[in-house]
């Protein structure tokens, strides 16, 4: 089974807002801020590795990003991915979701012979959650978004798709796109052997020319959406202690307060 995992390498989303500046509707992280594989993308890697360990095959990690995304791909290799490809070209800069999906789809097409494409449900930096659907659209594949469980029966994938009240079981034939939610797997910590192998691995870089992409359709030039305004919301936090004689009383008062705030 050949699996492609699309990952995004993003500034640490748990860093406080003070670590970011906004310039011309663009987010500029402070120098020295940590980057990491986006939340749920690492779970997608783990899900891919578990499928591979059970059924054999190869896992390829790809990332569209600046050269620094190489570190994210190294981490994916250290976790156990078999190969990684970095998609990097000045023409890709500032792509919107559609542009990103177009580049990733082209790369997946170039890789060929793919049974499953895994992504995270949404990237931790912009939270758009559109690229997976875009990839499926460009490749003409079915997509299950978002998934909390995936297994392979030998002929099709059984995917649990999350919705508000629970999940539904979907059987889907390969190749297909599945966007992973955090419940799907607990990402492993790479072993030192993995880290060492990854540090020696060569990661090829594919450009627009390699992928046969018209630079006018992606990146800044190809954007179909634009950000009207980007700002840090003012969040007001107030702390209130609920007191009482015993835990039961405190609980009762808490419930009452939450009702007053229309939170229950």
């Amino acid at each position: 089974m050949n699996i492609v995992v699309c990952i995004k390498y993003v500034p640490d989303w748990e860093a406080p807002a003070s670590q970011f500046r906004i310039e011309d509707s663009r987010l500029v992280p402070a120098p020295g801020i940590a980057y990491r594989i986006s939340d749920t993308d690492d779970e997608a890697i783990e899900a891919a590795l578990q499928l591979k360990e059970k059924h054999g095959g190869r896992v390829t990690a790809i990332s569209l990003g600046p050269a620094s995304a190489r570190d994210g791909l190294k981490h994916a290799l250290a976790m156990g991915c078999d190969q990684a490809v970095l998609l990097d070209d000045p023409a890709f800069e500032d792509s919107d979701a559609a542009g990103t999906a177009a580049v990733l789809a082209a790369a997946i097409r170039k890789l060929g012979d793919v049974d499953l494409i895994l992504t995270g449900r949404q990237a931790a930096d912009w939270d758009q959650g559109q690229v997976h659907a875009g990839i499926a659209e460009f490749l003409g594949l079915p997509a299950v978004i978002p998934a909390r469980h995936i297994e392979w029966t030998g002929s099709e994938f059984i995917v649990h798709r999350i919705y508000e009240e629970g999940y539904e079981e979907i059987a889907v034939k390969p190749p297909c796109v599945v966007a992973c939610s955090n419940e799907i797997a607990e990402p492993r910590y790479p072993t030192l052997r993995g880290i060492m192998a990854a540090s020696r691995a060569q990661i090829p870089v594919w450009t627009a020319a390699d992928l046969g992409i018209d630079p006018g359709r992606v990146g800044r030039a190809g954007r179909r959406t634009r950000v009207l305004r980007l700002y840090a919301p003012q969040v007001e936090a107030k702390c209130e202690f609920i007191e009482g004689e015993n835990p039961e009383e405190i609980a009762a008062k808490l419930v009452q307060r939450l009702r007053e705030e229309k939170l229950l």
């Binding site: 640490d12 860093a15 670590q19 402070a30 020295g32 910590y189």
Partner: peptide, 17 residues
């Protein structure tokens, strides 16, 4: 713990700056 030490150089993941 390891992730925080790797990314931020401290056990809690506070910004190094």
């Amino acid at each position: 713990l390891f992730n925080n030490l790797e990314r931020s150089g401290n056990p809690w993941g506070y910004p190094p700056t």
